[in-house]
Structure formats: C-alpha cells, structure tokens
Write a protein that binds this DNA or RNA. Structure first.
Lengths: 185, 185, 185, 185
DNA sequence: TATGAATGAGTCTTCATTCAT
DNA sequence: CATGAATGAAGACTCATTCAT
C-alpha cells in the first residue's frame, strides 16, 4: 500500500468510527505512520481527502451495480440480484457506508460533489428504464425509482449495522419483496 | 418569544442551513441578540441545545402522526393521509428536516437520544400492526415497515427540497403509490 | 445567623475545601441559599469577602493569644499554654487554617492586608519581649521569634491535618519542646 | 535556551511575580515569544508546566542538600552549612521560592505530586537520623525535625524577601541558632 | 434588601495548515 | 518526498459583576 492509499484508508476508518469533527489531521497522520506535513504532499487539504474517498466510493459503487446486472437473466432475477448485491456490498464495507453517512451532510461534501457522484448510478437508471419500457415496472421517473430503492437498501443496512434486525435473513427477504412489489406491475 | 425559545429557533435555523460544525455558539448568541454567556444561563452546553431541538422535533412528529390517522376512514385512505401528512409536515418545516439530517450522525446525538426519539413512533407502529392483522398489509416486522416507509418519505422530501422534482405533484403521487404497493396485499 | 454571616461562613468552607480558583460567586450564592445579586448588597466584591474573613480570623487569633497568656503562671508554663492553645485552635478550626493557607499568597491578600493582620500579634510580641528582658529567652527580634514559633506551630498543624503524625500526642510534645529549647536560655 | 526551557523559565517568572490565577497561557506565550499553540506542542496543559517546574525545583533542592552535607566536618558545622546552604539557595532563587509558595496550595499541585516531591528530602532525613543515633540531636521523628527546620528556613527567607529583616546578617545568625538549639542536646 | 437573568471579557485548548530543515 | 515544530485564529465555556424588577 502506498503512503497515499494508507492515508485514505486511515481517514476512512477514523471518520467512519468517530465522525469528521472528532478526526483531526494530526490523528490521521499518526495512525498512518507519517508526519503531519506529509499529508499535505499528497493532498491539498482535509476536504480533498474526504472528497476523494467519497467519489472513489461512488466509483466502486458503479462496479457493484454492473457486476449484479446479468442481462441474460429475467428481470425479477436481475432486480433481486441488484438489490442483494448492493446490500451485501454495504454490509461487507460498513466503514464506507458509515463514512458516506457521516460526510454526506457536512460542509465537506457540497452539492457539486454530490452531483458528480450521481453519474455512477447510470447503469441502474438504464435498468429501470428498460423495465418500464418492457412493461414490467410501473411508470415513474427513473431517478425517483433509483433513489427510493436505494433508500430501501440503506434503511436495511442501517438497521442491520445497528443490530436491530432479529432473524435478519427473513427481514432482508421481506425488504426485497417490499421493493419489488413497490415497482412491479 | 422568550429568550430561550429564540435561542432554540436561531440554533435550528443556523444548523439547518450551515451544519453544526459551522455554527459556533458566538454566532447563535449574536443572531439571537444576546450575549454569549446568556446561552449558558439557559442551556448547559451546545449539546444540550441540539438534543432539546432534536427531541422536541420528535415529539412534534408524534402529533403529526396522530393528526393523520383517522380511524373512521378506510385503511388505504388512512395510509395515504399519513404518508401525505408527514411529507407535508417536512416540506412545511424544511429547517427541522435539514436539522435532523445534519445532526443525526453527529456525536451530538448518541444512540441513547436516538432511542429516546423512537418512542414517538408508537402510533405508526400500531397502525401497521392493525393493518397486518386485518390482512390488508403483508406480514412484516412493524418496525421494519415503519422505517422503510419513513425512508420513502424522506427520500421524496430530500429530492423536493433540492429542487430535483419536476412536475412534483405527479412524482409525489408516484411515490405514495410506490409505498402503498410495497405493503398492501 | 444573618445572611451576611452565612455568606462568610459558606465562603470560608468552600475556599478551604476547594481553593479560591474553584469557588465561583455563583456557588457561594447557591450554597448560602441566596441569589447571586444578594451577595453584592452585603459585599463590594469577592475580594472584600476574602479580606473580611482573613482579617476576622486574625482578630479571633488575637483572642486566642490573650486567652492563653496567664500572667500568674511561670514563663515556661505560659509558653506551653500559648503554643498548645494556638495549636488546638487551628486543629479545632481546620477550615480557617486551610483558608489562610489558600489565600495567603493569592492576589486577594495584598501586603497591606497582611500588614494589617500582624497588628493582632502584639500580645505575643509583648510576651516574648518580657521573656527576653527577664533573661529567660535568648536575645532576638521579637518579630523574628514570633514568626519562627508560629511557623513551628503551623508546621505541626499542617502535618496533623494531613494525617502524617503517627502517635501524634508524642510528636506534638516533641514539637513544643523543639520550640522551647530554641528560645530558652 | 530551547523553546521548551524558555517556556518553563517564563512561566516560573510570571507565576512567581503575579500568581497562577493572574498568569494566562496567552501571556506565557507572548513573553516567551511564541504562539499560543506552540506551548501545547511542548506541554499537555497548563497543569503539566506547573508540575514540571515544581518537581524540577525539588530535584534541584536535593542537590543543594547534598552539596552542603560534608561528612568530614563536625555535626554542628554540617548543620550550619546545610541550613545556610538552603537559605542562600532560596535567597538566590527567589522566583523558585515564590513559585513554590504560590503553587503549593493550588489545585495544580495535588497530594500525589507533593508526595513525589518529598522523595528528594531523603539525604536530610539521613543526616538527622545519624545525629540522633550519635546522641547529638534530641530523639524525634526525622520527618518532623526536617519539616520544622525547613519551616524555620522558609520563615527567614519569607521575611528577608519581604524586606522585614533589618540588620539581616545578625537575624539570620539568630535564626540558625534558634534551629540548632531546638534540636541539639 | 432581594432576585436571578444578562453581560462580555477572558480562559484554556484545539487544529488545519505552513515552512524551514 | 518527508519531517515535525510552529502558527494563530477560532471554539466552547466560565464567572465576577450589573441591573431591571
């Protein structure tokens, strides 16, 4: 791992676990095993680090979407695969999930950056578009569908990570059905 | 308005518009037209102000729920009323909505306070419980339904407040249908 | 007890137990059962309260001296009586002893006030003067003798209050002898 | 002088001359020619600076004791040397003397730190122990002798620094005799 | 006299960032 | 590229004192 990657990784962990406000640059430096000044050879500012993590998480998210859309499969199978894929991605990367939550409404992420992040949802948009055209999904703005479904998944992850899902397999199943019924015709 | 109420109101506005981190006590004092020390005559700390606003918003939320559950009406009408009532409450109180978002994942609101806030959801829980018993709603944990539906509404409010809903009446209609289809049998 | 006396008493206790710096006027008010503003009807400032306690303790000290100098007794008996009397006075009034220590080198007691307090030592001065004249005590400045003997007593009180005197009766006896041998011819 | 030493020196001077309460960190910084933040690069807190000065003064004190105990000399000569050595050390380092007085009963020095400081008195204890065993000194707890004698010296320094010793050589002589007669057999 | 809300200067401390080495 | 000492503006909070009631 390069020093740069190490810094990104450390920042991610610290912010996810203790919030931005409680994460000074000095701590990032110490936990990364570098001097304070060194950070500024790799990044312009604290904001830049945060934004870089934010955007790279969105890029990775795009790959998760792509990896779970198997054109050959039926539309319902694809939908379940997509939903579960994203859910599991978050569950397996809780730091990333927490990080985005911490950071999303802070001054570190402005509307421009948020907008930039939305680009990576395109493949999901297309999937819903196709579903609507083919008469499988109710007619709605694809952006709206995407946000609602993504919101459902986030709700589940949030509950799961907080240990609020007893018999969780079953509840996850319920939640996917919830989303599916919400949009299918 | 008492000085105390003025302070709560000012804090709500400032945090909603510019985040907690960007809202120093000195600014709260100045915008409230009082001296810094005066704040501490009314509140123990910045944290206490934030928590008080948070919890009183949850209490108000409870009244919104109650006001929109008309037992006499059919279950679908009740659901649409509840959904729209909450949505409109948020749209009419955007500062409160933003405030809760800003504050929710900050160290100012700990799990204990969050838990304390969940008490006020009880009436919604009961509504979903009844709906499941009577065979109108799919069988799911009521907590799970509540969180998912509330998530849907929040998604809509978020999009609306960010000006991302063209032809918004229509889209709100779509979103309610989304939620309704998600749970109805 | 008048409100004024109550305030003096409370201040004495608080400062003795937790130092001046840790004793705000607000606490003095609360523990005295009055409002903050009330203090300022009775005293001009915090400094005035402290000085008043300081000087009244010195006045009381004068009475302790007088009460323990029995002209009829022999000089050694008088000395032992004086030494023990002061020692016991301090032991029985530990708050006063601690208070004076806390306050003595703080900006609240200036050299003028300290000088004012020394007036009350006159009777002890006279006692030593007489002892020197009659050839019982070594020839020294009476102020010097007084300060040294008083220092001895304070040392003992300090050790005693800190629980550092095992078999304390014996050690107190040793200390009085120490002082007596120091000055007797 | 390193920046660290400069800070210690400045703090010593300021506190000695104007008390802790009247010595804000900002003034320590300014008089040391550094920024406020720099202090915290070298010390954890105000308390740490004060404690460090306190303990290093005690360490130095130990050396003063050792330097003035000449085993070859007679016991009386040693005693006079020790007494005078300490006295002169204080007179030549009035800031240190005042500092310890200012700080001794403040919350900055707790009992633990005070206890830690007492370690450095060991050599004096041994000297008195030996004197008692050899029949030169009256039988007393060595801790008690030490505290009483040290109290005598402090009394003298205090008077001297306050300009209250006219014909001071003579009075110092008297005071040493006072201490010597107090313990010798 | 008594109250207690209000004041605001002042305290310690933090922390993103810079810069000489 | 790397270091870490240094910066200084800014933050939360305290507290002696005032003043309208």
């Amino acid at each position: 791992m390069t020093k740069r990657e190490k810094l990104l990784q450390t920042t991610l962990e610290l912010i996810a676990n203790q919030s931005i406000q409680a994460t000074p640059m000095s701590q990032i430096a110490k936990e990364s095993g570098v001097a304070t000044g060194t950070i500024y050879h790799h990044f312009k500012s604290k904001e830049e680090i945060v934004q870089e993590i934010y955007l790279s998480s969105k890029k990775e998210f795009q790959q998760v979407i792509q990896a779970n859309l198997h054109a050959a499969a039926g539309i319902k199978a694809q939908f379940y695969s997509l939903w579960s894929g994203i859910y599991e991605y978050y569950i397996n990367n809780p730091l990333l999930f927490r990080f985005v939550q911490q950071v999303n409404y802070s001054p570190y992420i402005n509307e421009a950056t948020r907008e930039e992040g939305r680009v990576y949802y395109q493949d999901a948009y297309k999937f819903f578009e196709t579903g609507i055209m083919s008469g499988h999904f109710r007619k709605m703005e694809v952006m709206l569908i995407s946000e609602l479904i993504h919101g459902n998944i986030s709700t589940l992850v949030e509950l799961q990570l907080n240990g609020m899902l007893a018999d969780s397999n079953n509840q996850v199943k319920s939640a996917i059905d919830f989303s599916w019924n919400a949009i299918r015709i």
